[in-house]
Amino acid sequence: MGLVDRGRLPKPLTTLFNMGRSYSLWVYQWGLACCAIEMGAAFGSPRYDVMRLGVIPLPASPRQADLVVISGTVTDKMAPAIKRLYEQMPEPKYVISMGSCANCGGPYWDSYSVTKGVDQIIPVDVYVPGCPPRPEALLEGIVLLQQRIKNEDMGARWRGEGTKPMNVVDGESAEKGGVPVVVNN
């Protein structure tokens, strides 16, 4: 893993790792509203059967998950809990925002208590539109995410590049989190 940290993974190995990661996604189901039922249909029903895509929808806690599906209306009361549990997920982590409410507020665009989009709190990788999206749409979102994972530079992802470092104590660690670190040897 030292190779990964330094971003010096040989290309065949990167491809292999990415393939492994994309086909063993552990999904933490964040079911909030109507979309949660469609997510349940996609993950739990024999008709849609997400496991054939290599997605395991049953981690016991966010600490074991690679992907979180935010499905449903995010309210201002719920937002801190979402941020907190997202921060507990280990890197590399991905977010799918499912449904209009999680994307942008949806039919509650002028409500006083709804957060207009979960991307205000956490970074989102794939948006799945619809109110609610059909289970097939969520499956397509997962396939798109898998394509994205396959083409990823794993070293960069491992260093948390492109995402803000979370527990920044001093400036140095923030810098390391933000830009690629090149080790001279």
Partner: peptide, 14 residues
């Protein structure tokens, strides 16, 4: 309760 409060009764007014 209230984690899913979306303000229906106020939204219906507009």
């Amino acid at each position: 309760a209230g984690y899913m409060h979306r303000g229906y009764e106020k939204l219906t007014e507009v």
